[in-house]
Design a protein around this nucleic acid. Structure first.
Length: 483
RNA sequence: GCCCCUGUCGUCUAGUGGUUAGGACGCAUGGUUCUCAUCCAUGCAACCGGAGUUCGAUUCUCCGCAGGGGCGCCA
């Protein structure tokens, strides 16, 4: 009988949702969905100093934005109470008391100075940094009389023991208890530390598979030791390779955005980031790159996860985001772009032409990589662009040629009927241009309208732009040439 | 200092005891376009090194080297 699949993501609210945490959450989520299990969100806020509610909110919001929904969470609750470690202190205290009473854990009365002095000695002697504590065999009752002084609760690690476990991604991993020493499990009876709290929570919440970052590999033997002492059943383990920055070290702020919220603000679509992160260290086994959430849920497998770390390559994300932007319906894209447009374009201008917004945005859809680019790209529709006179020059045209070219365009446009499609516009112009170099007419016209060296075609622009506005811009361009 | 993990194009990766080592991003070139993007076509570019096993290793073993992670009264 297989145990029901229950996995968790256990972030600590000490900063905004990190891209690495999001990816770990994603893999846990995908694994749970694949096997019809539960994905749990547990907030690890035992460190009250560093934890902050605002980051907790950022984590909730970020995961919700990505569409990584927890089946049980601090908000949704569940059978095992609120999934916030700060609200489970009583539980930890109970187990801590048991360990202490059994003599499996003890009070260490060393000061921090003593400990760091010991560390230096160990380092100098080229020995492993393991603290085998002199207080490990002091009877509990004796130790308890001295709790006024600085102390910490440690686990009494057995000597010379091999700790072996099977990692689903890396195979069998083996550690020597001699190199671990008596590690700390709580600052005090009421203040549990990470390694201890995780073990209790994972056991109580019946976590079947622990899928977490590679940085936790060396914590695993400690946690295993605790499980044995407490008589807990061991979960399966899968340690994910790290996401690296462009310099191959841990993804850091210096090298670009590290939090999910930054990507959201930059105008990346959640489905693009979801897809991209899934492919960072995993692949479907064939050559597909664009995979929907449903496909990912159905096809995910821990076995196909890469062992080595992956660099977060923003260029590929940009490409993928562009792919997803092109898939959007115009209505959806307009809604998505609106906040970015409002940043650049005054609301009265933006909404005066709102009936054309869809057409304007559809025009830029194939060019967009990030939503944040939209404002700058379509600004010229809303106000007279600034540009240098020289931009109007196509190849070796003289000023006189440019003026003549603009006048010709002016003449053509003046004859337009009030509503006209881009196909009709194109036909009108082509009729006038004949077989010659189209750039002679079209380049100066396009620059006059947009002020840009790259943009959609003048036909598409003219279809949207008011005729009077277009004529005015041509007039302005002509003045530039004369001046 | 000690322990652990990892090593295929610049990047994400597929793959094999014998393959022209495949795909995607990127880049370059060409086609389409007044321009840009889209689209299409073509091209560029990799098995960390050295031994060993083998008829034959990118693939298996060992030793190096390189990169990464950990060794908290953080998680």
């Amino acid at each position: 009988m297989e145990k029901p699949v229950r996995v968790r993501i256990a972030p600590s609210p000490t900063g905004p949702l990190h891209i690495g945490t999001a990816r770990t959450a994603l893999f846990n989520y995908l694994f749970a969905k694949k096997f019809g299990g539960h994905f749990i969100l547990r907030i690890e806020d035992t460190d009250l100093e560093r934890s902050d509610k605002k980051y907790e909110k950022d984590i909730f919001d970020g995961l919700a934005w990505l569409g990584i929904d927890a089946d049980e969470s601090p908000e949704k609750g569940g059978k095992y109470g609120p999934y916030r470690q700060s609200e489970r202190i009583g539980t930890y205290k109970k187990y801590l008391g048991k360990l202490l009473a059994d003599g499996a854990a003890f009070y260490c009365l060393h000061s921090e100075q003593e400990l760091s002095a010991e560390k230096e000695t160990l380092m100098a002697e080229k020995k492993p940094l393991a603290h085998w504590c002199e207080f490990r065999d002091v009877p509990l009752a004796d130790a308890e009389t001295k709790l006024g002084q600085s102390h910490v609760i440690r686990f009494k690690t057995p000597h010379n023991q091999k700790i072996v476990f099977k990692d689903i991604i890396r195979g069998e991993l083996s550690f020597d208890s001699e190199l671990i020493g008596d590690f700390s499990i709580a600052k005090d009876i009421d203040v549990p530390l990470y390694n201890f709290a995780v073990v209790i929570d994972d056991a109580e919440m019946k976590i079947s598979h622990v899928i977490r970052g590679e940085e936790h590999i060396s914590n695993t033997p400690k946690q295993l030791l605790l499980m044995v002492a407490l008589g807990f059943e061991k979960p399966g383990y899968a340690h994910l390779p790290l996401i690296l920055g462009t310099d191959r070290s841990k993804l850091s702020k210096r090298r670009g955005a590290t939090s999910v919220i930054d990507y959201k603000n930059e105008g990346y679509l959640p489905e693009a980031l979801f897809n991209f992160m899934a492919l960072l260290g995993w692949n479907p086994g064939d050559e597909r790159e664009i995979l929907s959430k449903e496909e990912l849920k159905n096809e995910f497998s821990l076995e196909k996860i890469q062992k080595s770390g992956a660099i977060f390559d923003i260029t590929k994300l940009d490409w993928m985001n562009g792919e997803y932007i092109r898939k959007k319906s115009t209505e959806d894209l307009v809604a998505l772009c609106l906040p970015y447009l409002e940043k650049i374009i005054a609301p009265e201008l933006l909404h005066a032409t709102s009936y054309k917004l869809q057409t304007i945005i559809a025009l830029e859809q194939p060019r967009l990589k990030k939503l944040s680019e939209i404002g700058e790209r379509v600004e010229y529709f809303f106000k007279q662009p600034e540009y240098d006179k020289e931009l109007l020059r196509w190849k070796k045209m003289s000023d006189t040629d440019i003026s003549a070219s603009l006048e010709k365009s002016e003449k053509i446009i003046t004859q337009f009927k009030s509503t006209i499609t881009k196909t009709e516009i194109e036909k009108e112009f082509l009729k006038e241009i004949g077989d010659g170099d189209k750039g002679i007419i079209l380049w100066p016209l396009r620059v006059a309208l947009t002020g840009k060296k790259a943009s959609p075609s003048p036909f598409e622009i003219l279809e949207i732009m008011e005729r009077d506005v277009a004529l005015e811009r041509i007039a302005i361009a002509k003045k530039k040439i004369v001046a």
